[in-house]
């Protein structure tokens, strides 16, 4: 890591509390290495649309216990995820670039309760969590651009008020 990065990157604490992506890769790649994440995103976007988990109607069914679909999707996704992570740890798997795969714990904060409830409210109103907001825009419901910008504003206001909120 360059000294410049060390000097400017002062919030490892904050990042480990809040960002989901805290793994520090020591490898430096050309920009086009990031294109593989575009492909991953394309796959995820297709799955989100084709499974209809981005549908406001499916979300209403879920919260009214009128359909098993969403529970089946989330439940089987978690099951596959647990097995995958267990195998990765069991065999000390490496990335395609040869780095050891590391997973970080999610520390508890009261924000998971208060923020979780607030997000739940928003999820039921908009019928979308952050991934589906992006997917709905791609799927042609362009007015969701406003909802996405509002979500960015919500994130910004959280950052602004962060020190005053209970954690």
């Amino acid at each position: 890591m360059s000294t410049e990065l060390k000097e400017t990157n002062t919030d490892f604490e904050v990042r480990s509390l809040d960002a989901v992506c805290i793994n520090e890769s020591e490898l430096r790649h050309s920009w086009w290495y990031n294109l593989k994440y575009l492909i991953a995103g394309v796959l995820f976007g297709i799955i989100l649309v084709k499974s209809e988990v981005i549908s406001w109607f499916r979300i209403q069914e879920m919260f009214r216990l009128q359909s098993f679909h969403m529970y089946g999707v989330i439940g089987s996704a978690v099951a596959v995820g647990i097995i995958s992570v267990w195998l990765i740890k069991r065999y000390n798997a490496k990335t395609i670039h040869g780095e050891k795969i590391t997973l970080h714990p999610k520390p508890f904060s009261q924000g998971q309760i208060y923020g979780g409830l607030l997000f739940g409210f928003g999820w039921a109103i908009t019928g979308a969590c952050p991934g589906p907001l992006f997917a709905l825009i791609g799927n042609g419901t362009l007015v969701i651009i406003v909802t996405l910008l509002s979500a960015v504003a919500g994130t910004w206001v959280y950052g602004r008020l962060r020190e005053k909120l209970p954690h």
Binding site: D18, F119, G120, G122, T126
Partner: peptide, 26 residues
């Protein structure tokens, strides 16, 4: 539905430190 709902999604997920994908799946 479109503005307040989106605000709650952005504020709530960051306050919670993750969303459905970051917490519920990952």
């Amino acid at each position: 539905f479109m503005v307040a709902g989106g605000f709650l999604v952005g504020f709530g997920t960051r306050y919670a430190g993750g969303c459905t994908s970051g917490h519920s799946i990952a």
